[in-house]
């Protein structure tokens, strides 16, 4: 008390804010720099990889035949022909897979959100979807081989590939659809029920259309993902250098399979085709990703 009286200029208390000690500041700076660096570390391989693929592969793509010709009758050392047959295989196998996986996946998601009530079976299903998303593609391929070829005695074909891809696509579709359905506000459902609309019609006419763009985005992403899968095509279908339109019969090329086969070709033309096909595959996947992003950007669910 007396001190205050004797020296009015001295504050009653020490300042509340002290400077942060140098050690703490250094640690803080270091953490900032290190986290930023980890990001750079991740970007380096991405840029390096894309640069490699583009610089080695763009030449092949500039050739007009690349998109419209197969490799039928092309000798290993010839710089002609294209990946038309493999492009067809990649897209068709993914589409056939989507035709099977999307209905099952969406219906499962509807079950989980609208009917499951977090009951016993719903929890088992969620667990199994998680496990399925962790199943390696080679195991899915082996399973289809064991079922399709060994047990049923059928020939390997593009359809068998699609079946294996279904197992890989399902969990992605279920997850993304489930997430979107949960975003649909309950008020919409309640309003529909109040008007006397049955539950199934509410789901089909109200819930699904509201979540549609999100679901489509998820499906596109899932399709892009299965297009890059190589293990199933290695096990379940033979490579063909010419076009084959029949999904159920015969060998069919796809971009990953073409890359894998041309890797064995030591000629410069083979290497060019390898990198060209790799670039084509990346472009194809990027295209699907881009469409998915555009769809989700332009029509997000209005939660309010």
């Amino acid at each position: 008390m007396t001190a205050v009286l004797t020296d009015p200029n001295r504050p009653a208390q020490a300042p509340a804010f002290q400077k942060i000690s140098t050690a703490r500041q250094i640690k803080n700076r270091l953490a900032t720099v290190l986290t930023g660096l980890t990001f750079l570390v991740a970007v380096i391989p991405l840029v390096w990889l894309l640069y490699t693929v583009i610089s080695n592969g763009y030449e092949a793509l500039l050739n007009g035949d690349w998109w419209f010709k197969s490799l039928k009758g092309v000798l290993p050392e010839q710089f002609t022909g294209g990946v038309y047959h493999a492009l067809y295989g990649s897209i068709v196998q993914a589409l056939v897979c989507a035709l099977i996986a999307v209905p099952i996946g969406i219906l499962t998601a509807i079950y989980l959100v609208e009917y499951g009530n977090n009951g016993r079976f719903a929890r088992i299903t969620t667990f199994m979807v998680d496990i399925l998303s962790g199943v390696p593609s080679i195991v899915a391929a082996l399973f289809v081989f064991a079922l399709w070829v060994t047990t049923f005695g059928l020939e390997t074909s593009a359809f068998a590939v699609s079946l294996a891809l279904v197992l890989l696509m399902l969990p992605v579709v279920v997850r993304s659809t489930e997430e979107m359905l949960r975003l649909v506000p309950d008020e919409l459902r309640e309003a529909s029920y109040a008007l006397g609309v049955p539950k199934w019609k509410t789901i089909v006419k109200i819930v699904l259309p509201t979540a549609l763009s999100g679901i489509v985005t998820g499906v596109m992403l899932a399709t892009a993902r299965v297009m890059g899968e190589t293990a199933p095509v290695l096990v379940l279908v033979g490579y063909s250098r010419s076009i084959n339109f029949d999904v159920f019969d015969g060998n069919m090329a796809s971009l990953p399979l073409l890359i894998y086969n041309e890797l064995l070709n030591p000629e410069p033309a083979g290497q060019l085709r390898v990198w060209g096909a790799a670039l084509t595959l990346i472009l194809l996947i990027m295209f699907f990703n881009l469409v998915a992003t555009v769809i989700s950007r332009f029509s997000a669910i209005k939660t309010k």
């Binding site: 209905p103 399973f143 049955p198």
Partner: peptide, 29 residues
Amino acid sequence: GDGIFRSMTTGSSLVIVVSIGLIGLFLLI
């Protein structure tokens, strides 16, 4: 209508659950 739709969704879930079991079973056999 509700019953049909409900069993369709339940059936799809069942497909997923069963396929995991089948993977293990077929590989084992």
